[in-house]
Amino acid sequence: MDPVTIDTTKIRTTKRKPETALEKLEDTGMINTILAAKDREGFILLTTIDQFINWGRLSSLWPVTSGLACCAIEMMAVSMAHHDIARFGMEVFRASPRQADLMFVAGTVTKRMAPRVKQLYEMMAEPKWVISVGSCANTGGPYHESYCVLKGVDNIIPVDVYIPGCPPRPEAWLYGIIQLRQKIKNEGYGVKWGLNK
């Protein structure tokens, strides 16, 4: 019998576009699903603890209103209709730090304002992250040689992401938010809780 030759150039694997919500979730690569047997309702999700918790944390961070100076106006521009921050789930700016989990330090931190910023950070509940926006909050900025400006907010609170600029463009702002989401995605709670032992 003649061997069958298969022309491999003509085989195309087709990946279906995800349609239902569950398929879209699978497509992110973070959660695999198994459809339960027909006579049982409900679904079983296969994932890791890290991925599931991080997905819950990064998808909708609520910032606290702590705009201090010029960068606060860019914060308002980012949250308005043209560059929409609601796409990231962040349009709800909470006035009370107890209800927020992200702090944008936007603007110059002066020596007189520094203990209040530190108090605001300590009032936020865990888990919490800090993004330092603009050169004044990163290192003191153009006011580095002044007598009453703190040279960078990381002298008083720990910072996760620094966004440079004076003021940073809204596109740079959104890039910084995406970097923070990547950082949260890679956090490891299994190791922290000792589950690898």
Binding site: L68, A69, C70, G107, T108, T110, R112, M113, R116, P142, Y143, E145, S146, Y147, C148, V149
Partner: peptide
Amino acid sequence: YLHRGTEKLGEMKTYLQFIPYTDR
């Protein structure tokens, strides 16, 4: 709470270098 010492910086920078501080 936002006093940044612009007037003192005016004495430490040249005439052209002070213009960005007036923006802020």
